[in-house]
């Protein structure tokens, strides 16, 4: 069953740029970027249970770092993307260490405040980020190859997304993943079992920020401009809802949520006057009737139908 799903996904991914316009490929690029963001959030909230609301800040750090590296210093884009990921994860590690003592709601609020403060920095540090004028991002370059259109960037965006997905699965199956989940269930029990709780939490933050930074790097592959308005709490909430709607705690849920919500978002753009109400209503209805996420909900239905 899973094999078929992967085959279908592969077919769609390969066929997409051949049968559709650059606009659809742009949407796909955006969706893949958000998928990586969701995977990052899955690691810190879904696996480790740490309620971090600073995701958009790390995404922004990744975009600016990768963008500046490529535009001002002319680094080839695999290096730029990596710089984005590392810059974000460095800050992520620091935040993780500072946040060690905090729990649940306090952690959520502190990371929320950090995210907003970071957006203010993006908006006011004119020398580096261009401030309210935004930052121009030059087309990504790899030796001779230049990525100018969405279709040019697409294969590399897909490759990066797949790499991050593989990384997520590796981490989940490794001992680190088990440590994450142990900390989520019960810190005291985990400690008793010999899990280095403090270090695990810091690592979770760092890795999650790395993912967000890589997503930022992906963004620079197909975008020419970034403005701090897109890097605030709204974006973090968007990613959070994708993960929750898809299903917290499962990799498939994170990926599925990104796709489902990305499509819903684009559809809602066609109904401007009801957008906000529809968005809010979707959140409420999901929380009321499909709390484990869309895919768990559907899976339950199918399982029920088959057994009936």
């Amino acid at each position: 069953m899973r094999f078929l799903a992967i085959a279908v996904a592969a077919a769609v991914l390969i066929a997409l740029p051949l049968v559709t316009t650059g606009y659809v490929v742009y949407l796909a690029n955006l969706l893949l970027t958000f998928t990586v963001l969701c995977l990052g959030m899955h690691i810190v909230i879904g696996e480790t249970g740490q309620f971090s609301l600073a995701h958009a800040a790390f995404y922004g750090i990744g975009i600016y770092a990768a963008g500046i590296a490529g535009t001002t210093f002319g680094t080839p884009f695999p290096v730029s993307i990596l710089i984005g990921g590392l810059a974000a994860s460095a800050i992520g590690f620091v935040i993780g260490m500072v946040a060690l003592r905090m729990r649940d709601i306090y952690l959520a609020l502190a990371t929320f405040a950090f995210g907003e403060a970071m957006q203010w920095v993006f908006l006011n540090w004119n020398a580096v980020t261009g401030g309210p004028n935004g930052l121009r991002i030059a087309p990504a370059r790899l030796f001779g190859l230049e990525l100018v259109t969405d279709k040019d960037a697409y294969p590399f965006v897909v490759a990066t997304a797949i790499a991050m997905l593989v990384l997520t699965v590796i981490v989940a199956r490794a001992r680190l993943g088990r440590s994450f989940r142990a900390v989520r269930e019960s810190e005291i029990a985990a400690q008793a079992m010999g899990v280095p709780v403090r270090r695990t939490k810091v690592v979770a933050f760092g890795i999650s920020a790395f993912f967000a930074g890589i997503a930022g790097g992906m963004f620079t592959l197909f975008s020419t401009y970034i403005h701090p308005d897109s890097l605030g709490f709204q974006t973090t909430i968007l990613v959070l809802t994708m993960v929750v709607v898809g299903g917290l705690g499962s990799i498939g849920g994170a990926v599925g949520g990104a796709i489902a919500f990305g499509l819903i978002s684009e559809l809602l753009r066609q109904a401007p006057s009801f957008q906000e109400i529809a968005y809010g209503a979707i959140l409420i209805v999901f929380m009321m009737y499909a709390p484990k996420g869309l895919f768990a909900f559907l899976a339950d239905r199918f399982r029920g139908a088959r057994h009936a």
Binding site: T21, Y23, L30, Y225, I226
Partner: peptide, 21 residues
């Protein structure tokens, strides 16, 4: 007519849709 929601990302999406689609 497309809705650009007054933000950069949606505006770029609207423009790309109008031009390419």
């Amino acid at each position: 007519l497309e809705d650009d929601r007054c933000n950069a990302n949606d505006l770029v999406a609207a423009v790309k849709k109008l031009v390419e689609q």
